[in-house]
């Protein structure tokens, strides 16, 4: 295989293949939109005792109010209408709902990451905790915790904790796990040689931690933070489902499904995808900057 470099490499190895696949998916999407929405139009035509021409049929399938599968341009139009054309304080603005989801995601992510790091530090430094806590941390993730998110929200509501915090707690529960596991691995990653070297310097435990263990765990931290931020967004969205669908992207999904507003569901879904992509990219960016400053560019 020949090696390409610079812009040419970007074009042939990245833009062209990804673009082709995306274009193919869009075509597929349009195709399915026509296919899935056609029965309704045929039905309408049959009721009106009218013949419907193929071109008319195709046109109609792509502009229904409540299509089975909305066409991409309808979703794009809805997103444009609910972001750029609405005031961001409006309850119909996607930015308003998106911000509510993002804020609880970030709060939960911060709490989860802090808890994960704390647990990892404790586990690495205590044999008892390592042996007794670690198996339970792993078991805790085989429990479908998302399933009990509604209960957590309702119960916390009953004791007058409502709003941002319950959702953030679910995000935190989901995101602490990858961080804890990654950090345990990271804090244990220094070579035996390096640890021995620290010992010959007569370094104390905290010195070993700050000068050796912590720096070598940083790459692991960022890798697991990328997983954690994505999963805490999922937690925030699911956490918004049972709160009576007040606000947030999850609430948009739920009200959309109650009233059959497929376009609204899809636009909320796309918005969630964009938020996820942005959050992961941000963490990645921070990790690159930090790694560069630490001289650990791979």
């Amino acid at each position: 295989m020949q090696q390409r470099r610079g812009i040419s490499s970007f074009f042939f190895d990245r833009l062209l293949p990804v673009g082709t696949v995306v274009a193919f998916l869009l075509v597929l999407w349009y195709g399915f939109a026509m296919l899935l929405n056609a029965p309704f139009e045929r039905d309408q035509a049959a009721r009106a005792n009218a013949e419907i021409s193929t071109s008319q049929l195709i046109q109609n399938t792509l502009s229904q109010d409540r299509p089975v599968l909305p066409a991409p341009h309808q979703v794009a139009d809805e997103i444009w209408k609910t972001t750029a054309l609405k005031k961001i304080t409006s309850k119909r603005s996607l930015v308003y709902h998106g911000w509510i989801t993002i804020s609880s995601t970030l709060l939960g992510f911060a709490m989860g990451t802090a808890l994960g790091i704390l647990l990892a530090v404790l586990i690495v430094h205590s044999r008892v905790l390592d042996k007794s806590l670690m198996p339970w941390i792993i078991t805790s993730q085989t429990i479908p915790i998302l399933a009990i998110a509604p209960m957590i929200i309702v119960v916390l509501n009953a004791v007058n904790i409502s709003g941002l915090l319950p959702k953030a707690l679910i995000s935190a529960y989901l995101s602490f796990f990858p961080v804890a596991v990654g950090m345990v691995k990271g804090l244990r990653s220094p070579d035996l040689m390096h640890l021995d070297l620290m010992r010959t310097y007569n370094a104390s435990r905290s010195q070993v931690f700050w000068k050796l263990r912590w720096p070598s765990a940083v790459p692991f931290l960022f890798t697991s933070m990328k997983v954690a931020v994505a999963i805490s967004l999922v937690g925030a969205i699911v956490g918004e489902l049972p709160t009576g669908a007040v606000a947030g992207l999850g609430a948009r999904l739920l009200t959309g499904s109650y009233y059959g507003q497929t376009i609204q569901i899809w636009s909320a879904l796309i918005a969630a995808a964009v938020v996820a992509a942005v959050l992961v990219t941000l963490v990645d960016l921070v990790s690159r900057i930090v790694m560069k400053r630490m001289g650990m560019v791979r």
Binding site: V18, V21, G260, T262, V280
Partner: peptide, 27 residues
């Protein structure tokens, strides 16, 4: 060609809140 095209998308989708398609699938 597919590997270059589909893998970045696969990686992206793996990080997305896929659970959101639940209402659509129910519909």
């Amino acid at each position: 060609f597919l590997r270059k095209g589909l893998l970045p998308i696969g990686n992206l989708v793996a990080a997305l809140p896929v659970i959101g398609i639940a209402p659509i699938m129910v519909m």
